[in-house]
Amino acid sequence: MTLTTRTSSAAAQQSLPQRLNRLRAGVLGANDGIVSTAGLVFGVAGATTDSGAVLVAGLAGMVAGALSMAGGEYVSVSSQRDSEVAALREQERELSSDPAGKLRQLADHYAARGLAPALADEVATELSRHDALDAHAEVFLNLDADDQVSPWAAARASLVSFITGSAIPLVALVASPVAVRLPLTVVAVLVALLATGLISARLGGARVVPAVIRNLVVGSLAMGLTYLVGSLVGQHL
Results as ranks from 00 to 15, higher is better:
193 L>G: 07
221 L>F: 15
142 N>P: 00
206 A>V: 03
69 M>N: 12
185 T>E: 05
34 I>M: 05
6 R>A: 11
198 L>H: 01
188 A>T: 07
146 D>T: 01
147 D>E: 13
65 G>V: 02
73 E>C: 09
140 F>C: 02
159 L>G: 06
33 G>V: 05
60 A>P: 05
195 A>W: 09
212 V>N: 00
195 A>D: 01
221 L>P: 05
34 I>Y: 05
222 A>M: 08
179 A>K: 11
58 G>M: 13
186 V>R: 07
229 V>K: 09
178 V>E: 15
173 L>H: 03
10 A>S: 15
203 L>T: 02
211 A>V: 10
25 A>L: 11
174 V>P: 00
134 D>A: 02
210 P>I: 12
50 D>G: 09
188 A>M: 07
11 A>M: 12
35 V>F: 04
32 D>E: 05
140 F>V: 02
227 Y>I: 06
9 S>D: 06
236 H>D: 06
131 D>S: 00
227 Y>A: 15
163 I>L: 14
59 L>Q: 02
63 V>T: 08
86 A>Q: 11
151 P>Q: 13
178 V>A: 15
29 G>L: 09
177 P>C: 08
30 A>E: 05
219 G>Y: 14
196 T>V: 12
81 R>N: 05
121 D>V: 09
193 L>R: 08
115 L>K: 05
21 N>A: 15
209 V>T: 12
13 Q>A: 14
104 R>M: 10
27 V>H: 05
160 V>L: 15
153 A>V: 07
103 L>V: 01
195 A>Q: 04
63 V>N: 03
180 V>P: 05
151 P>T: 12
85 V>C: 04
232 L>R: 13
84 E>M: 10
12 A>S: 14
148 Q>F: 08
234 G>I: 00
168 I>N: 06
71 G>R: 04
133 L>G: 00
7 T>M: 14
225 L>Q: 09
193 L>S: 02
208 V>D: 03
209 V>G: 07
31 N>K: 09
160 V>F: 12
14 Q>W: 14
21 N>L: 10
58 G>R: 10
148 Q>K: 04
138 E>C: 01
206 A>I: 01
102 K>F: 07
201 A>H: 11
92 E>K: 00
94 E>R: 15
91 Q>K: 05
173 L>W: 01
7 T>F: 02
2 T>V: 06
180 V>D: 10
34 I>W: 02
103 L>Y: 01
175 A>G: 04
124 A>L: 07
201 A>F: 10
206 A>W: 03
15 S>A: 10
170 L>A: 00
229 V>T: 11
25 A>F: 08
117 P>Q: 13
216 L>F: 12
226 T>S: 15
45 A>L: 03
139 V>E: 00
179 A>Y: 09
158 S>P: 00
43 G>V: 04
123 V>E: 04
1 M>T: 03
176 S>L: 07
211 A>P: 05
38 A>E: 07
223 M>K: 10
22 R>D: 15
198 L>T: 14
46 G>E: 02
97 S>F: 09
37 T>S: 06
6 R>S: 02
123 V>Q: 08
161 S>T: 07
19 R>W: 14
201 A>S: 15
218 V>T: 15
113 R>Y: 08
146 D>R: 00
149 V>G: 05
213 I>W: 13
